[in-house]
Computed example of a mutant assay.
Amino acid sequence: MWWNPLMTHPPPSPGSVFFNAAAVARYTEGPPRVVPGFADMHRMTALLLAERVPENGRVLVVGAGGGLELLAFARAQPGWSFDGVDPSAEMIQLAGKTLKEHASRTRLHHGFIDDAPEGPFDAATCLLTMHFVEVEERRSMLAEIHRRLRPGSPLVVMHMSFPQDEAGRSTWLARYAAYAVSSGVDGQDARRAVSAIDSQLNILSPEQDEAILRDAEFSNVSLFYAGLTFRGWVAYA
């Protein structure tokens, strides 16, 4: 789940668009244009999960609204089943439409991690979501994901993560805007998006992100993806 400047005009606060039906209807247009290597990131995630998930494995997807990663995983692994959870009813509804051909092996849950099934799951993902979550809530969220995983199961996370000193933050946000514009986003919309991201998202440095994963008792934390302002890690319960 990722807010993007194509969902509304002008861009509102990043999180609010997920509860706006008109904005949600345009969701799938945005992520491929503002997230470098979006489709490849999904493909890499599926490959990392497949290293340990059995052919009939069960996967938890946190922040599943829209259903784009669920669709990618379902197409890659016809034997897996999925539980997806998201706090936006509108985004869950969109995910249901996206996953129509795979509905028999996908269950969608409206709510937060506490509303997800207990598991145990063979893997979990949380893509383009953590930057919406306050730091302390992020710690408890990761702990709840860990509790639902079988020992040794992989977790893949990916979200905005870049240096947080003043100069570094400014530089990386400018690069986000430049990439969006190069993908066809209007320059004024991109600047408004950066302003909203800067003031409202909970972005940490890569070092802080890795530390929080370890604090939640995940081990062997490894970077697998870096695309300008975004980073992705695989870790194990």
Rank of each mutant, 00 (worst) to 15 (best):
D115Q: 13
A64C: 14
G63H: 03
S13K: 15
E134C: 07
R26M: 07
G63F: 00
L128P: 02
L48W: 01
L108H: 08
H42F: 05
I113Y: 05
H110V: 14
I113H: 03
A76Y: 01
R52M: 08
A74C: 13
P31N: 03
E51M: 13
F132G: 00
V85Y: 01
S88D: 05
R33Q: 12
F132N: 02
A116C: 06
G67I: 08
G111D: 13
T98V: 10
M91A: 13
S13Q: 15
A25Q: 07
V35E: 01
F18E: 01
G119P: 05
G119T: 11
G111V: 13
G66T: 08
T125R: 03
V59S: 03
L68I: 09
A22G: 10
R58S: 12
H42Q: 09
A89V: 11
S13Y: 13
Y27H: 08
L128Q: 09
D40W: 14
E51V: 12
V24E: 01
R58M: 07
D114L: 13
A89K: 09
A72Y: 05
G66W: 01
G66H: 03
S13G: 15
V35K: 00
P36F: 00
E55F: 08
T98F: 02
S81W: 10
P36S: 02
T106A: 12
G15A: 14
H110A: 12
H109V: 12
R43C: 09
M44D: 14
F121G: 01
G30E: 00
F132K: 02
E101M: 13
A123W: 02
A103V: 11
H102V: 07
